[in-house]
Deep mutational scan, measured.
Amino acid sequence: MPVRRGHVAPQNTFLDTIIRKFEGQSRKFIIANARVENCAVIYCNDGFCELCGYSRAEVMQRPCTCDFLHGPRTQRRAAAQIAQALLGAEERKVEIAFYRKDGSCFLCLVDVVPVKNEDGAVIMFILNFEVVMEKDMVGSPAHDTNHRGPPTSWLAPGRAKTFRLKLPALLALTARESSVRSGGAGGAGAPGAVVVDVDLTPAAPSSESLALDEVTAMDNHVAGLGPAEERRALVGPGSPPRSAPGQLPSPRAHSLNPDASGSSCSLARTRSRESCASVRRASSADDIEAMRAGVLPPPPRHASTGAMHPLRSGLLNSTSDSDLVRYRTISKIPQITLNFVDLKGDPFLASPTSDREIIAPKIKERTHNVTEKVTQVLSLGADVLPEYKLQAPRIHRWTILHYSPFKAVWDWLILLLVIYTAVFTPYSAAFLLKETEEGPPATECGYACQPLAVVDLIVDIMFIVDILINFRTTYVNANEEVVSHPGRIAVHYFKGWFLIDMVAAIPFDLLI
């Protein structure tokens, strides 16, 4: 008679799926529990143990900040960024110097990925580790590398530091407007667009060049630039800015003055950032001319202004700041037409079709709590990747769950009947059967004279019903998954307890 339990259901295979997918890609990662103190490590794979030199037993239950890997060259700011990422709910990448158990130093890129439950609360953290440099290539500990984003994938490793954006290309926007319009339909740009040429040739750093990471940081200074100062900065030398009595002219307006920039070969870094931020506020060169004239017309309804409409929906549905990093990277690809469009465009503009998908598509409701890094690593669709929660398995109709209350009560009843059979069957065979043979035949009273025979008949009927119930009862397979398919249940029961239950259900007393 089957006594099969499996009270692990309803099970959740999400954690096993993450481990299996990460292991298949030869990654070095740990999984931490966000619900406990210090976000203790609950799993670390073999790749991480080989990377740091510690065994799994030495890593388990330690804080996922990996303070046991810190050393003299470990930056405090990087460690603080990892700790801050564990307090938030967004994906974050941090470069930090770690030390192995043998004392060797290596520069590592740590990717902190939160995993949320159905309520939107962070319950786990996945920390992925990628070695960037070994100890002989690690720089000085005073050099802070965590304020910069990861290198873009479309640049060669040897040319990542030679990417320079020439400031004269930004200063000569109005001069290039006529050349853009003359391109017409034969050019790649839309009317009114501004073409910015980027020099990728390796050259020595000069005062006129600005690194790509500095251009990325310009967006942080746009908020500090007032509207009046932006307007004066875009007017140009024809209309000098008016300053109040006793007030000095704005240095932001002076930063885009061609006369002032041409007199000296070098520009201050602050002026460069502010000038680029001011130019980015204009949607095209037409807006710059309109600002000089004193009238700013409404933005025209053409394809170039609607190019950012799908980007707005993608940004609203993005799951991490990696989408913004990807957008900034692609927006700086050289030799393309940049349409400086305000994100607050007309909502009635139709979304044009684009061959290049900048932001990841909208994630469906079932995966809105899973970050983009987890979705990318697992390579699963929205119909396959579940949320991290207890999910009731989908069972067929008329199927009994093996952990249901009805099955528990039924098993206790069958257990009592088995005990009765084990006690009274030998007793009936030894004593009652002998008395029946010696006594007179009682054929007239039937079952009324033999109450134990009636009980034995009921017990046999219950055993037959138990066999039928076992054909529709779920079970737990070797992978700790609840199986509810009727065919698989029948095959599993035939290979197991079916023969024993059938022999126990045969009414031998009635056959004798």
Rank of each mutant, 00 (worst) to 15 (best):
R356T: 10
N12R: 14
A190W: 13
R280V: 12
Q376H: 07
T152K: 06
E130P: 01
T375W: 03
I123A: 15
L296S: 05
A282S: 11
G294C: 09
L267H: 11
S322E: 13
L349H: 08
F340A: 14
A57C: 12
L167Y: 08
A382P: 14
H368G: 05
V194D: 01
K362D: 14
C105V: 15
D102N: 09
P241T: 13
A217H: 13
R164I: 12
G186Q: 15
I363N: 03
P298G: 12
I42D: 01
R164F: 09
A32C: 06
F22R: 05
C276I: 13
M124A: 12
D144M: 07
A40N: 07
P352N: 07
A193H: 01
L378K: 04
F163L: 06
A80F: 09
C66L: 14
D144Y: 06
T371F: 14
G183Q: 14
T145D: 15
L173S: 14
V196H: 01
L212Q: 05
P347E: 11
S104M: 06
L324T: 12
A260C: 13
K28V: 12
M308F: 07
G120S: 07
L51W: 04
K166E: 09
T353L: 11
P347H: 15
L69E: 01
E95W: 01
R27E: 04
D287R: 04
T74H: 01
S322V: 13
T13K: 06
P298I: 05
F68V: 01
V138I: 07
R76K: 15
L69A: 01
L343R: 14
D287I: 07
S55V: 01
R242P: 11
E90S: 09
T329F: 03
G183P: 09
L343Q: 13
A57S: 12
Q11G: 15
T65I: 09
E23L: 01
S313Y: 12
L107E: 09
L267A: 08
T162L: 15
T329H: 14
S250G: 10
A268P: 09
A9T: 08
R56C: 03
K344I: 04
S179W: 01
R269M: 12
M137W: 14
L107F: 14
K166S: 15
C105E: 14
C52W: 15
T17D: 08
T13G: 13
D342E: 07
P151W: 13
H143R: 14
L155Q: 05
G192W: 01
K28I: 09
A80V: 13
L315M: 08
P114D: 01
D342R: 07
P72G: 01
N128H: 09
F48S: 01
T145V: 15
E357S: 12
P251V: 11
V374F: 11
V3N: 14
I123D: 14
A204T: 15
A83Y: 06
A34G: 06
R312N: 11
H309F: 14
T337Y: 05
V113C: 12
H368S: 12
I19G: 01
F340T: 14
E23M: 03
L324W: 08
V384S: 04
S207A: 15
E118D: 11
S272C: 07
S331W: 05
R148H: 05
V196I: 06
T367G: 15
R100N: 04
A293R: 10
A382C: 12
R159I: 06
P300I: 14
S318M: 01
L87H: 15
V122G: 06
K166G: 11
G381P: 01
N33T: 09
T319Q: 05
P63V: 03
G246N: 04
I336C: 15
G381E: 08
V59Q: 01
P352C: 07
V198P: 01
S179E: 06
L315R: 09
S266N: 01
Y99T: 02
D46M: 05
I96Y: 01
G47I: 01
L324Q: 15
A217L: 14
P251C: 14
G246A: 15
V131W: 07
S351G: 08
G183M: 07
D342A: 04
G88T: 14
P205M: 06
P310E: 04
V115L: 13
P240H: 15
